[in-house]
């Protein structure tokens, strides 16, 4: 039998296209992966370094228990936006955020909000694994100790649980007292993830966590992200678009806007949507050009 025509497919697709909103923010509903609760709501934020406006007017919401990927060319401001989500930019002299960004409904840059408390809830994993020059055990126990946990048994539990979550326990359980500096790159990065998880954050921000790792270690981290997303909300900046397609539920594409007259450049959020839509059927020609590799 030869296939019969499929008018329904056409009709459905056209109905979907007609119903597509102009707003770049993804819609809640049937296609939402997590609980549908928003963790962050950035409502038109601009981020400056001194007089230089690195990012302009970013509007997006990050959803609970999802992995959100930020992609875009160098200088598009994706890392700057990521760092604004746990006030990491406060540590940069001259950096400031304008506009409203809310974390679980509370203004993140409110006067009475402590950046330290923010970072305790919103952890960060960096591009280069940065284990402390201490034992594996002490790396993990570092945060909980600062938070006042002194009980040895309780600390042991946290160390074990965090290392299991970070898929590192089996590899290091017999050498917890050994220096963390002796770990391989992939192990060191998983240690840093375990260290982030040890303080039981709400959100984990990852800034190119796999760019210094080999494919096997990268797979281990990607599996780990999917494993833990039921308990955490993850935002990842990545240059690896295939990684974004493999791990993320939603993808935000940032690009650079050049102003020829003033010879300045600033990062903008071009398109934000379900990852499959961004990579299969992007709406904006700039997204299309970037994901297909036709422009840098």
């Amino acid at each position: 039998m030869e296939p019969t025509p499929e008018p329904n497919v056409v009709a459905e697709r056209q109905a979907r296209a007609a119903a597509r909103p102009q707003d770049t923010r993804p819609q809640d509903g049937a296609e939402s992966y997590g609980s549908g609760t928003t963790i962050f709501d950035a409502n038109g934020i601009s981020i400056y370094y001194g007089s230089f406006r690195a990012v302009t007017d970013v509007k997006l919401s990050i959803y609970e228990n999802e992995i959100t990927a930020f992609i875009g060319p160098s200088g598009c401001g994706k890392t700057t936006v990521l760092r604004s989500l746990n006030r990491m930019n406060d540590l940069v002299v001259g950096a400031r955020v304008e506009g409203d960004v809310r974390y679980r409904g509370t203004p993140l840059y409110g006067k009475d909000v402590s950046p330290i408390a923010v970072r305790r809830k919103i952890g960060m994993v960096f591009q280069k694994p940065n284990p402390f020059p201490k034992s594996i055990y002490d790396n993990i126990a570092y945060g909980p100790r600062i938070n006042g946990i002194r009980n040895k048994k309780r600390l042991d539990e946290i160390v074990e649980k965090s290392l299991i979550q970070a898929a590192l326990w089996d590899e290091v359980k017999h050498r917890l007292k050994a220096s963390a500096l002796g770990l391989s790159g992939g192990q060191a990065q998983r240690l840093c993830i375990a260290r982030t998880l040890a303080v039981e954050p709400d959100v984990v921000l990852m800034d190119e966590p796999c760019s210094a790792l080999d494919p096997i270690a990268t797979s281990a981290i990607e599996d780990l992200m999917k494993e833990i997303k039921s308990q955490y909300t993850i935002v990842i900046v990545t240059h690896n678009m295939q990684q974004a397609t493999r791990v993320s539920d939603r993808t935000a594409f940032f690009s650079v806007l050049r102003n020829e007259e003033s010879d300045t450049r600033t990062g903008v959020l071009v398109e934000y949507g379900q990852t499959q839509q961004i990579f299969e059927d992007p709406h904006d020609p700039r997204t299309q050009a970037y994901v297909t590799g036709r422009m840098g």
């Binding site: 025509p5 697709r13 296209a17 059927d281 709406h283 904006d284 299309q288």
Partner: peptide, 18 residues
């Protein structure tokens, strides 16, 4: 029918890029 099928495939091919 085959001509109809091809035109239906073009809907996917065309995408929704503005």
């Amino acid at each position: 029918d085959h001509a109809v099928n091809i035109a239906s495939r073009v809907v996917y091919l065309a995408g929704s890029q503005q």
